Simulated scan of single mutants.
Amino acid sequence: MPDQNDDQAVTPDAANTAGGTQDASQPDPFVVLENLNAENATLKDRALRLMADMENMRRRTEKEVTDAKIYGVSNFAREMLNVVDNLRRAVSSVPAEAVGAAGPLKTLLEGVELTEKDFLSRLARFGIKPLDPQGKKFDPNMHEALFEMPDESVPSGTVVQVMETGYAIGDRVLRPAKVGVSRGGPKVAAETLN
């Protein structure tokens, strides 16, 4: 007859589990927790970087769209500046004595002047404005110097003559103004340059 204590015999595996020691096939829960925390931190870092990249791309795209709206007409506008120049030349070529006389030439001149003003106002609606450098300090970013003129009455480097009007669109130069610059006058003080 079997002993009653035999039914309750303890196996070595059960003794290890009951005694608190882990089976070699089961991972340590602290190691698992540390691995999960590290993986969580890595995934959180990736998610934050991805969100930052997406925000940067959104801002860049918004700026590109805004620039396209403002500067998209630049090439067309640059070509149209020749029309404005030709209208100005037409008005300038009429002799002064013919301007005051009544008749068809005066009517034609008024029509050309009105066309020029209308054309300039339409360009202004798209942010295209003329540059007026007369009497200002020469700026190589906005002006193209064609010649230098000796002039002792103004500081050296001052625009004394505008040969061709320049234009800007937004904050960019569409076409630099072609100018004559003074030479030989007093030097401009550093405070007046800023």
Rank of each mutant, 00 (worst) to 15 (best):
D13M: 08
K69D: 07
L131D: 00
R49H: 11
N16E: 13
E34A: 14
E110N: 11
E110G: 05
S74N: 08
D118Q: 14
I169K: 00
V173L: 03
A189P: 08
D171H: 08
R46H: 12
N194Y: 01
D28Q: 04
H143I: 00
Q22Y: 08
A168V: 02
D118H: 12
P133T: 01
V181C: 02
D3A: 06
N16M: 14
N56A: 13
L114D: 10
P155C: 03
A168K: 11
G100Q: 08
D151G: 03
P155I: 04
T107Q: 13
G111H: 02
T42R: 11
D118S: 12
L36G: 07
G185V: 04
I169Q: 08
D171Q: 10
A24P: 14
T66G: 07
A168N: 05
Y167A: 09
R46V: 08
V179A: 01
P133E: 00
D53E: 15
V173D: 07
V162I: 11
S93M: 14
E34N: 13
D139W: 06
R59Q: 12
T61E: 15
G72Q: 06
R122Q: 13
A41L: 09
G184N: 03
G135K: 02
D53V: 06
K129G: 05
E144Y: 10
M163L: 08
D139C: 04
